[in-house]
Simulated scan of single mutants.
Amino acid sequence: MATKATQRKVLAVLAGGLVLGVGTAVTLAAWNDSEFANGTFTAGAFNLQGSTDGTAYADHNSAGSAATLAFTLPAGLVGNMSPTSSVYAGFWVRLAAGTTSGANLVADGTTADAAATSNSDHLSYSIYQLAPGATCDAASATGTPVATGTTLDLQTGVTTVPLTAGATSTDPGTAVQLCFKVTADAVLEPSLVTNATWKFTATSTN
Score class of each variant (00 low, 15 high):
residue 101 S to D: 13
residue 91 F to E: 09
residue 201 T to R: 15
residue 26 V to G: 02
residue 37 A to Y: 15
residue 80 N to E: 12
residue 123 L to P: 01
residue 10 V to Q: 08
residue 133 G to A: 14
residue 19 V to C: 10
residue 26 V to I: 02
residue 172 P to V: 03
residue 121 D to W: 05
residue 125 Y to A: 05
residue 64 G to E: 15
residue 140 S to D: 08
residue 159 T to R: 08
residue 128 Y to T: 02
residue 2 A to C: 01
residue 104 N to A: 09
residue 47 N to T: 12
residue 188 L to V: 04
residue 148 T to F: 00
residue 84 T to S: 12
residue 27 T to V: 10
residue 205 T to C: 13
residue 139 A to N: 10
residue 9 K to E: 10
residue 55 T to H: 09
residue 80 N to K: 11
residue 33 D to N: 14
residue 89 A to E: 04
residue 163 L to T: 01
residue 102 G to F: 04
residue 74 P to G: 05
residue 15 A to D: 10
residue 75 A to D: 13
residue 161 V to G: 01
residue 92 W to Y: 09
residue 100 T to K: 14
residue 131 A to I: 15
residue 56 A to G: 08
residue 152 L to K: 03
residue 84 T to W: 04
residue 39 G to W: 03
residue 137 D to A: 05
residue 24 T to Q: 06
residue 80 N to H: 07
residue 140 S to T: 14
residue 8 R to C: 10
residue 118 S to E: 08
residue 99 T to C: 01
residue 204 S to L: 07
residue 37 A to I: 12
residue 16 G to H: 02
residue 16 G to A: 14
residue 194 T to P: 06
residue 93 V to M: 10
residue 111 T to Y: 03
residue 152 L to P: 07
residue 152 L to A: 04
residue 22 V to L: 09
residue 120 S to L: 05
residue 166 G to D: 02
residue 65 S to T: 15
residue 42 T to W: 01
residue 7 Q to P: 02
residue 174 T to W: 14
residue 114 A to W: 00
residue 183 T to M: 04
residue 84 T to E: 09
residue 132 P to S: 11
residue 61 N to L: 08
residue 40 T to R: 14
residue 21 G to R: 12
residue 62 S to T: 15
residue 189 E to A: 14
residue 73 L to H: 00
residue 70 A to Q: 12
residue 194 T to A: 06
residue 36 F to C: 09
residue 184 A to I: 00
residue 72 T to M: 07
residue 86 S to K: 06
residue 89 A to C: 06
residue 113 D to W: 05
residue 176 V to N: 02
residue 199 K to Q: 15
residue 53 D to C: 02
residue 158 V to Q: 12
residue 59 D to S: 13
residue 135 T to S: 10
residue 147 A to V: 09
residue 83 P to L: 07
residue 72 T to F: 08
residue 25 A to S: 13
residue 122 H to T: 08
residue 37 A to P: 07
residue 128 Y to V: 02
residue 4 K to A: 14
residue 141 A to M: 05
residue 175 A to D: 07
residue 136 C to I: 09
residue 132 P to V: 09
residue 83 P to Q: 11
residue 37 A to T: 15
residue 162 P to H: 00
